[in-house]
Simulated scan of single mutants.
Amino acid sequence: MPGGPLDLGLVLGPLRRGPGDPTFRATRDGSVWRAVRTPAGPGTLRVYGHGGEVCAQAWGPGADWLLEQLPELLGAADDPEAFVPRHRLVALARHRRPGLRLTRTGLVLESLIPSVLEQKVTTDEAYRAWRLLVRRFGEPAPGPAGAFERPMWVMPAPRTWALIPSWEWHRAGVDDKRASTILRAVRVAARLEQAVAMPAAEARARLEVVPGIGPWTSAEVVQRSHGAADAVTVGDLHLPGIVGWALAGNRHADDSVMLELLEPYAGQRHRAARLILLSGQAPARRAPKMPRVDIGLL
């Protein structure tokens, strides 16, 4: 397990796709639950603190794989000491969040599919689509998580994704472009999962061979699958303005300005951006939120 402070919510929080994510649950006792499709099959993982230690339980065919992967999931492969703050705001954020580590799931598809769903739509729309599709086509999580008041679900297998009819994508609010990208990805799922053994840059290049997967999506994936400390997200609607405001008082910063501001953190730009987001320093919203589009009306 990683040494030093460990905040389960901060470490595993990026794996949660909205408050109703059927594959992720944080309970009042401080436990974090994950329902996962592992290379060995479906599994459920519970991680919790007890007496100053981190404990875990797992169920299902994927239980052993989940427990073997647990140290990296909790950031054992991460090196937060390699990060040197260059701005007071970033230094303060790091001081206030000593338990932040970058998770490494060792899985590609579980981050890729929800990331594709988040392309060019509001987060609420993407979270709804993920929630509906997983509950309709996934399978109940093994172990006690399947008996929760709101049962947890394991996401569908690649072949199941490939067989989802067009009207079900439509019902979930997913347009043809995003659905087609997911269908192309699941057809080469094995090749994409092999990318976990590659350096993050090579993994991103392999992902981006699939039409519809660009730099925004590949960065969002390797941040989770690889714990990639330098995979800063470009092409995001809000991140450049947040970074620009926090580091230079520039709410109108674009990707090029953001990357210039983050250049002192080369090798650790994703971690720097994460700390900036955790600082809470964001410009007041002036423009209306991205409008929701009901594809059923198109």
Rank of each mutant, 00 (worst) to 15 (best):
L8W: 06
G9Q: 06
V11F: 08
R17Q: 01
F24V: 11
A26N: 09
R28K: 12
D29V: 14
D29F: 03
R34W: 00
A40V: 09
V47N: 11
V47W: 02
Y48C: 09
H50S: 14
E53W: 12
G62R: 13
A63W: 07
L66G: 08
L66Q: 03
L67S: 06
E68G: 14
P71Q: 12
D78F: 05
E81K: 15
F83V: 10
V84C: 15
R86A: 05
A91I: 10
A91F: 06
A91T: 12
A93G: 15
R94W: 00
R94F: 01
R96N: 08
R97D: 01
G99N: 07
G99S: 05
R101A: 03
R101M: 02
V108H: 12
V108Q: 13
V108G: 15
E110H: 10
E110D: 05
S115H: 02
S115N: 13
S115F: 02
E118R: 09
T122M: 05
T122C: 09
T122N: 09
T122Y: 03
T123R: 15
D124Q: 13
D124I: 10
E125D: 04
A126E: 01
R131E: 01
L133E: 00
V134M: 06
R135A: 02
R136K: 13
E139Q: 13
P140K: 08
A141R: 13
P144S: 06
G146E: 01
P151Q: 01
P151A: 01
M152W: 03
W153F: 13
V154K: 08
A157L: 13
T160Q: 12
I164F: 01
W169E: 00
W169H: 06
A172C: 09
D175Q: 11
D176R: 15
R187S: 11
V188W: 04
A189T: 14
A190D: 06
L192H: 10
E193S: 15
V196L: 10
A197D: 11
M198I: 12
M198L: 14
A200V: 11
E208W: 11
V210R: 12
P211M: 10
A229C: 11
D230H: 11
A231F: 03
V232A: 07
L239D: 05
V243R: 09
G244W: 00
G244K: 07
A246F: 00
G249K: 14
R251N: 04
D254F: 10
S256E: 07
V257G: 04
M258I: 02
M258E: 00
E260A: 15
G267C: 07
G267V: 13
Q268M: 15
R269I: 09
R271T: 00
R271Y: 01
R274S: 04
S279V: 06
P283N: 02
P283I: 03
R285K: 06
A287T: 04
V293A: 04
D294F: 15
